[in-house]
Amino acid sequence: MTAVSVRLKFQLGARTLATIPRRLVRVALSLDDVLAGETPMLPALPAQADGYVVTSLPADRVDSLNTHGLLTAVRQRYVRYHADLRIGEAAWLATLSGSARSGLKRKTKRLAVLSGGTLDVRAYRTPAEIAVFHPLARAVSATTYQERLLGSGLPDGDAALQGFEALAAADRVRAWLLFVEGRPIAYLCCTAQGGTLRYDHVGHDPAENALSPGAVLQVEAMRQLFDDRFAWFDFTEGEGQHKRQFATTGTACVDLLLLRPTLANRATVAALGAFDGAAGWAKRTLSHPRLARMMRGIRR
């Protein structure tokens, strides 16, 4: 495997305060890897590489990973959420709370009314359909915080479109758009890896936040997937209320940074550890109910 340039971030929320460049071999575990119950073996480290970044390593396998004496730092802890599509739509809906089902039904009805009485969700999977989907979804993606703040919007350009069309030709793309009055306001684009469909690219027009278009679109996509060929819907790395709500289960995971034990890398690991620790302490402190009430009073 080859090393790629990675900027290690000192990050608070969506704001990056500083970065440190390193050349790292990325070892990204798929959902199948996560569920397999086996500890991965790291590939040989190229001479020019500073180390590895391992993502979605199950937390219970950290101690069994052979780190080859490299410096080790946990960059992130999270639950990797996934939905078992084999259980069927009725059983999946039963995993949602009564209030969640009621709220989603109300939001779906509201969006349907805005489109003349019928919810306007359109699905795309063939190369020709993806060619129609891509520019429409790109228009939505350009408005989203995922693209403006995180740089993780739907990939743009002819090369990106050709890549999606090639995946579609191999039956490895499922995509959806939600329209209101003929205008797309939310998109979801997923790619397949074996029997797993990945939650790769998602977003909605922030001007329509009050309508909860992302949640409504997710439900409609899930309904269709229970009649498709996939066993799992993988919400990928990172957490969020949306993922917790629609998943049926999850696996506690960590992202690991492994660096050669040089003086510069020791300083890097120490700095990242101190920063992450301070950020975590600040988050816990500010979330304390008494302090939260005080801050609300100050803002008023």
Score class of each variant (00 low, 15 high):
1 M>F: 10
1 M>D: 07
5 S>Y: 01
7 R>L: 14
10 F>I: 06
12 L>K: 09
13 G>H: 07
17 L>A: 14
18 A>H: 09
19 T>R: 11
21 P>L: 03
22 R>G: 07
23 R>I: 01
32 D>L: 06
36 A>K: 11
37 G>V: 08
37 G>W: 08
42 L>K: 02
44 A>K: 09
54 V>F: 06
55 T>R: 13
57 L>R: 13
57 L>H: 12
58 P>R: 05
61 R>G: 04
61 R>L: 12
64 S>K: 11
66 N>C: 09
66 N>G: 11
67 T>W: 03
69 G>Y: 06
73 A>N: 12
77 R>Q: 14
77 R>I: 03
77 R>L: 03
79 V>E: 09
81 Y>E: 11
87 I>W: 04
88 G>P: 02
93 L>E: 12
94 A>E: 12
96 L>A: 03
98 G>P: 06
98 G>T: 02
99 S>P: 00
99 S>Y: 04
102 S>E: 05
103 G>C: 00
109 K>S: 15
110 R>T: 06
115 S>L: 10
117 G>A: 06
126 T>L: 07
128 A>E: 15
134 H>D: 06
136 L>W: 01
141 S>C: 06
142 A>V: 02
144 T>G: 03
146 Q>N: 09
147 E>Y: 05
148 R>C: 01
148 R>Q: 14
149 L>W: 06
151 G>S: 10
153 G>N: 05
153 G>P: 10
154 L>I: 01
159 A>V: 10
161 L>D: 06
161 L>R: 13
162 Q>N: 11
165 E>S: 08
165 E>Q: 15
166 A>R: 14
167 L>T: 00
167 L>V: 00
178 L>P: 09
179 F>Q: 05
183 R>H: 12
184 P>N: 06
187 Y>P: 02
188 L>N: 11
189 C>V: 08
190 C>D: 10
192 A>E: 03
193 Q>G: 10
195 G>I: 00
196 T>C: 12
197 L>K: 03
198 R>H: 11
200 D>A: 14
201 H>T: 00
204 H>Q: 09
207 A>I: 00
212 S>H: 11
217 L>I: 07
219 V>C: 04
229 R>K: 15
234 D>H: 02
235 F>W: 10
239 E>S: 14
242 H>Q: 08
249 T>D: 15
261 P>R: 08
263 L>M: 11
264 A>V: 05
266 R>H: 12
267 A>K: 07
268 T>A: 15
269 V>G: 07
269 V>W: 10
270 A>C: 07
272 L>S: 11
274 A>G: 11
280 G>M: 10
280 G>D: 14
281 W>E: 14
282 A>Q: 13
285 T>A: 15
292 A>H: 13
293 R>N: 13
293 R>H: 13
